[in-house]
Write a protein that binds this DNA or RNA. Structure first.
Lengths: 210, 210
DNA sequence: GTCTATATGCTGATAGAC
DNA sequence: GTCTATCAGCATATAGAC
């Protein structure tokens, strides 16, 4: 085996173990919280010895950081965007649909983010202060232009963004409660489309776009 | 001192200590999670020796149970209700206003509940399965009657309840994020009224009630 | 009721053999 | 890279003096 192959193979093991550990860790952090999730429980779920987990990440804090980073990156890629050139109706429709689909597909991603914020965002101060605040400002400005042009009703753009965030993520974060109330064991494809239709309908009408 | 007075005084100390402990515990559970909050940290925040805390509640699990119960009771009293005899417009207005005010006044109550649900509601299965499911069914039926009578637009009543829940509680659960994005240190009285106005406006219009 | 001291078990992390 | 053995520290909970 050439040295290049050894490196490649090693890299494969590293990458695979990393993913196994991070997936297991995310579940444990959601179910038990940062402190409640033990390195042992993460290792058990990843089916690796505890020492290996600590070999890859050095300590629990680092595991959590990696989980958060991965989650934010995945979420940002998935939620799409609010495009300026499409007009408010299509832009809002697309945004709601993307967020609802992500919430049903990756509820754990939304949950770990939600828990972090609820606890005061100790690891995410910078993220909200720079990236997110900037994003909200840009999109709010866009909504304001549409309002000024008479293309949609006069609603507060920033709170409109909060409304869409909360209403869509609710189906991820509170899935347990929603399923219990709806008396279902799991969500089905039909539920996703129904939620998209409901939210799109009521919010577009709320914005004077229907 | 008569024995009746002794009992009364003792009862007072018990009641005061109980409240001090539960208030401190709720904060710690929100900030650190169940496992992350230590009996010591709860005692420190309550300004009592650790042993006293365990004298009153026996163990950490019991403290958490008491916090959850107190929180649910307080929340249920505060959110008001959806009244049948008022018609959809007034009923929804009142309900939104009550929930928003509660969210700004008692964010910790909403947060501890949210964390419990996100983690899979291990201590609240029965609550959602009986009390809450029943409540949603009743109110959904009411909305359906209003829709059938042509008093409001045809929107899914159950998802409408989820929407109002999520949109209002968001201001409690995600207060850190919202304040950071809005670049404020704290919420002011004006913010509360603005949120009520925004949500009432957009949801009523979404329901065809404006 | 209040508080100090302590038993007991678990957790994060490391050392070092393979 | 993988895994066993182990340690130091901390957390819950209790015993018992005051």
């Amino acid at each position: 085996m050439t040295s290049a192959n050894i490196i490649k193979k090693t890299g494969n093991i590293r990458a695979k173990s990393r993913i196994k550990i991070l997936t297991a860790a995310r579940t444990e952090f959601v179910l038990q919280g940062f402190r409640g999730a033990t390195v042992q429980s993460i290792a058990d779920r990843a089916e690796l010895p505890k020492a290996n987990v600590l070999y890859y990440f050095k300590n629990k804090e680092n595991i959590y950081h990696a989980v958060l980073e991965d989650t934010l990156e995945m979420w940002d890629q998935g939620i799409g965007d609010i495009e300026a050139n499409e007009g408010p109706k299509i832009a809002i429709e697309k945004f709601i649909a993307a967020k609802v689909r992500m919430s049903f597909k990756e509820p754990e991603a939304s949950k770990i983010y939600a828990m972090e914020i609820i606890q005061g965002a100790p690891h995410l101060q910078d993220y909200a202060r720079t990236y997110q605040r900037q994003w909200v400002r840009e999109k709010a400005k866009l909504f304001q232009q549409w309002i000024d042009n008479g293309e949609m009703a006069k609603v507060d753009p920033v709170h409109l963004i909060f409304l869409i965030w909360s209403a869509t993520q609710h189906y991820a974060d509170f899935d347990t409660q929603i399923l219990t109330i709806m008396n279902q064991a799991d969500f089905e494809e039909n539920d996703v489309e129904q939620v998209i239709a409901f939210l799109t309908d009521i919010i577009l009408r709320g914005c004077g776009l229907i």
